[in-house]
Nucleic acid binder design. Structure first.
Lengths: 337, 337
DNA sequence: CTTAGCACTTGAGACCACGGAGTGCCAGGA
DNA sequence: TCCTGGCACTCCGTGGTCTCAAGTGCTAAG
């Protein structure tokens, strides 16, 4: 059905359209890419490709433009991820290694990715669920307030103030602090709830109210802050492309962190690159964009996702290469912390 | 030079242009606003206003458009800040009072402001410099690492890991923690450096290396995190306006936190509303925008700034009303924390 | 199966004419 | 002195027509 030459034609169409942003015709195609056949032949192939739904013409007697399905085929079978140049790799490395804490790693990553791909970059904070407790600190703030600080081995810090306590005596707080650390250090966050279920019963009765209050806040912070935080960068890059859907819709979608997180989450195997093209995106405002994403993490466990959002008409090999490289380096940096 | 009627004409021009986005002519002006004089008279006034540089025509025989100078006069003398409706006030209050921590207050504020003004909102995190130490916590993480957590009375939390220590014995850390809190709780952050200068000398010699390391990180975090954090929202609102400078430039400027902070900082008396119009903004990319900002804080001390960025052609009275109201409510919420 | 040739389609751009909205100016009136 | 009505002029935006380039589909020959 689709022989090699037809595929080559499709590839050429995609590449040409991506770089020129203009519908590509049979003659120009034959000239610019060494297909070794005449325009007429290319036209015949185009008809076949159009019948199969890989390309389409904006109007009769205009050139062809790839459809979402066409890009999909291109990504799946006709292209290979383009590795970064060594200069680029070195730049990534030095740029990221200058970061001092998790927050800075994330902000730098997002900048980097936006710059490399010239598109909008999205980086999700490492999720809490996949990390383990490194330390829990309780700080008395006056008699009725205690601050809880939870530190994970991925460098994330969550803090909460627990208010309206009956009384929080120094030694009670100290006791609880010791017990919590003893019980929880090294535990996966997902394992925290079962691990603490019997904890109050291991304390003298008068200390249980405090423990209960602290635990409820601790558990709450685990579900609530779940994996909700993302950082966005390079929105200015949207301005240079013209989208079929309005720019406003896209910006609105991108501002909704919830939407972004859902989209990143929808991606498949986190250890692989995922590409969602045009209408494959479930969100209304992003049907004219493609999202290239990858999981990143320490070792073989993925902690969170990062990716870029751009027009369906994007340089897939290059973008995929950049996303993959950045994801790997961030993982390394995190591991090194 | 400029009698009352001329000013009334200018006011009418600004109001009309803001609401229609079209150059406004003498006839239409007389009809829509009850100026009580003929178009010819208005034309004469327009000539005078144009000579003074308050208005300009895009081309001969088109209507007039206010210049930056015209808007400036309008803001300074021809308009009054429009108070919000009680419904809006109530909405602000309920929306903001649902926030649980500083981060959420800031995010909610930015959303709120963007929604109220239909423009881009900018909120700066409460600055460290104007707040006082509420608590300092030191947490040993293994033998060579200590985490320092600094909590301010404005609810801000800074944490740092101090690495590569020779040894951090439990009791040394504990000692230092006590001493730090004893010395610093209640101290303005700006007063911290002098307050700790002689601190190592008050410790036994063997504990001084640890103290020095911790102090250097503490001081560093004071200057570094200074007032650098801003949150942005409502960028989608940019898409609906068309700017004379390219949208890209504006988005780029907005992404540079440094730029935003400088711009907010340039504003005058923090207890007042500041309006910077068009070319009054020092930054290149924002010469076609106006920035309305205000300080917010607890009591009469301003902790940080917030504001909105929009086209020079904006509804100044409404925007100023919204910014002022939001700034006040945020202050109240912060005080209530 | 490929290719050359050809007639056909269509949007983009150039050109033009025209109407509407706005202007400046002047002379007459309160 | 200031306002007003009148008038001639300017310019932009709109819509129509025309042409051109690029592209297409189809057919017949290699």
């Amino acid at each position: 059905m689709l022989d090699d030459r037809k595929l080559a034609v499709l590839r050429a169409i995609v590449e040409d359209y991506v770089s020129t942003n203009e519908p590509v015709g049979s003659k120009a195609l034959g000239e610019r890419y060494a297909l070794g056949v005449s325009p007429a032949t290319i036209r015949n192939d185009m008809v076949a490709l159009e019948e199969e739904g890989y390309i389409t013409q904006p109007h009769t007697s205009a050139g062809r433009v790839p459809t979402d399905k066409g890009y999909r085929l291109f990504v799946d079978r006709l292209s290979t991820v383009k590795p970064l140049s060594t200069a680029e790799r070195r730049a990534i490395e030095t740029f990221l290694s200058g970061a001092v804490d998790l927050e800075e790693i994330v902000t730098r990553t997002v900048r980097l990715l936006a710059q490399l791909t010239r598109q909008v970059a999205v980086v999700q904070y490492p999720s809490l669920t996949r990390s383990a407790v490194q330390h829990i600190e309780l700080v008395p703030l006056g008699l009725q307030r205690v601050m809880m600080v939870l530190i994970t081995d991925t460098g994330r810090v969550e803090q909460r103030v627990i208010d309206g306590l009956e009384s929080a005596e120094e030694h009670e707080v100290e006791n609880l602090r010791l017990l919590l650390n003893q019980t929880l250090v090294g535990t996966w966050l997902t394992e925290v709830p079962p691990a603490v279920s019997d904890l109050p019963s291991r304390l003298p009765p008068e200390e249980r109210p405090l423990a209960a209050a602290v635990l409820s806040v601790l558990l709450e912070s685990l579900v609530e802050k779940h994996e909700e935080k993302v950082v966005l960068g390079g929105t200015a890059n949207l301005a240079s492309v013209d989208f079929s859907t309005s720019l406003r819709e896209i910006l609105e979608a991108l501002e909704e962190n919830v939407v972004l997180i859902r989209l990143l989450g929808e991606a498949g195997d986190p250890s692989m690159l995922t590409v969602r093209i045009g209408a494959e995106n479930s969100h209304q405002g992003l049907q004219s964009t493609s999202i290239v994403s990858a999981g990143y993490g320490v070792g073989d466990q993925s902690l969170a996702k990062l990716g870029v959002v751009g027009p369906t008409r994007m340089d897939y090999p290059g973008t995929m290469g950049a996303v993959r490289a950045v994801a790997r380096y961030v993982g390394q940096i995190l591991a090194g912390q």
